[in-house]
Each structure stands twice: as structure tokens, then as C-alpha cells.
């Protein structure tokens, strides 16, 4: 069985992002970029499935600029087998990504696509769901546990108020939540081996997909600064403020 794992290069989770002065987006100059943490969890889960004998090959795919190749190499160093890099300098929206991935699925015929539930840059949380719709495959989103069965997967999902376990038949789309696993470190021997693993270079045009944006970002702004609070003298004053000023009780 083959598993396809899409991965995205995003601003590192440790970076304190700054909005560009003209409010058109986030400043990416000289900012450390890394693999989206949810994608790392997806790569790890695919590797664990392979280690358990539930998969033979793991293919990672990334859509983005030349540097996205580094993100693919990281996944290869963790244990994926080969990569596909769809090169573009344009910002690709979730729908464009899903359309491209659907074409990759057509070519590669994986039986499972595992991807992060969202990327920590846009936090859109849509690609997995859109891909499932385009392919007509079952989807199990926000997975916190994945178990391979004879004809598919038992997936435990994190939902509001608890956990839900569903069965999906193969082929399927699974999106990962934070508690699914703790991704391994790429060891130095594996970093060196990853150098020799193949990465196919493609472009969106190769797949005949129009990735032109459908959405327009009007303005990107910093969250409002938190203002200083006040100290109250007594419980009575606190209750009074909650009642009459805040109007919450």
C-alpha cells in the first residue's frame, strides 16, 4: 500500500510573526521557515503505519517555492521514501492545493492520504475536506488515533466535547490533530540518506490545474493590544463592575 502525505512549508512555530507595514500580509523576510507541525504529525503517522507493515511506500508532496524542497527533505529524513515538488512562487489557496493533490492522487493511486488538519500560517482547515470532496473519498478529520483494519481504518476524532470513533473504508483521507503522535527527530544518518532519495519536480501547469486565487485578502492586522486592567478594592466592587460595567452577570 502507498501513502501520500502532503506537507507545507510555513513560518516556524517559534517565530513571533509581524504584520507588514502596508497590511497586505505577514513579513516573511529573514524569518525561519519549517514544516507545518500538523504535517509533521502526518509524516510520523505514515511512517508508523509503514513500520507496522500496513504500508510499503510513503510519498510526500509539497507545493511551493524552491525552498519547499527543504521541507520535503525533512520528511524524507524522518523516513518517507520519495518526494514530489510542485514548484510555484504564487500563493496557492486551499482549493488550488486540493485540485493539485487530486491530480497527484490520480497519478500515484495511493490508498491513503494523511495530511495536517490545518497549516499554522492561514489556519484555514479546508484542504483535506476539499480533497475528499473532489475525489469522492471518505474523510476522517482531526484524528487522534488511527488503527488499520482489513478494509479501512478506525479513526478516533477530536470533536467538541469529546472523542468520536468512526470507520472509514479505503481509500480514505485522514487529517491529523495535535495529539495523534509525537513526531520523531530526523537522525543525522537519516538526514544524510535523505540526500539520495528522489524528488520529482513538477509545476501546476503539468497537471493542468488553474491555481489563480479566488479570494482576496483585504487587510491583515495585528490583534488589538490588551489594555491594562484595574484593581478592585473589594468583592462588592467587583460584583458591581461585573454587573453594571461589563454586564456579564
Amino acid at each position: 500500500m502507498k501513502i501520500l502525505v502532503p506537507v507545507k512549508r510555513v513560518v516556524d512555530y517559534n517565530v513571533k510573526v509581524r504584520v507588514k507595514p502596508d497590511q497586505t500580509g505577514v513579513d516573511l523576510a529573514n524569518v525561519k521557515m519549517s514544516m507545518n507541525p500538523f504535517c509533521e504529525i502526518a509524516v510520523e503517522e505514515a511512517i508508523r503505519l509503514k513500520e507496522k507493515g500496513a504500508a510499503e511506500e510513503i510519498v510526500v508532496v509539497s507545493i511551493g517555492p524552491a525552498q519547499a524542497q527543504e521541507t520535503i527533505r525533512t520528511a524524507l529524513a524522518m523516513g518517507a521514501d520519495r518526494g514530489i515538488h510542485i514548484t510555484t512562487d504564487d500563493a496557492v489557496e486551499s482549493l488550488g492545493v486540493a485540485k493539485l493533490l487530486a491530480k497527484v492522487v490520480e497519478e500515484e493511486s495511493p490508498e491513503l492520504v494523511i495530511l495536517g488538519k490545518q497549516a499554522i500560517d492561514g489556519d484555514v482547515n479546508a484542504t483535506g475536506q476539499m480533497l475528499a470532496a473532489l475525489l469522492g473519498w471518505p474523510q476522517a478529520t482531526f484524528a487522534s488515533e488511527v488503527e488499520k483494519t482489513d478494509d479501512g481504518y478506525n479513526v478516533t476524532r477530536e470533536i467538541d466535547g469529546g472523542l468520536q470513533t468512526i470507520k472509514v473504508s479505503s481509500p480514505a483521507i485522514i487529517t491529523t490533530d495535535l495529539r495523534l503522535n509525537e513526531p520523531r527527530y530526523a537522525s543525522l544518518p537519516n538526514i544524510m540518506k535523505a540526500k539520495r532519495k528522489p524528488i520529482d519536480a513538477k509545476t501546476p501547469a503539468d497537471f493542468g490545474v488553474d491555481i489563480a486565487p479566488r479570494l482576496e485578502a483585504l487587510k491583515v492586522a495585528e490583534p488589538a493590544k490588551r489594555e491594562a486592567g484595574v484593581k478592585v478594592e473589594s468583592v462588592a466592587e467587583l460584583v458591581d463592575k461585573l454587573k453594571n460595567e461589563a454586564g456579564v452577570i
Partner: peptide, 21 residues
Amino acid sequence: MRTTPPARPFDTPERASFRDT
């Protein structure tokens, strides 16, 4: 917060990846 070091003359993707890890 850690400051981002500038580009290095002898860097390779493997060295950068190792440094990250």
C-alpha cells in the same frame, strides 16, 4: 527569543537540517 543567525558561507542543506534537528 533566539536571534536568527545570518546565512553562512559553508552551509549545505544537510548541515542546516542537522542544525534544526
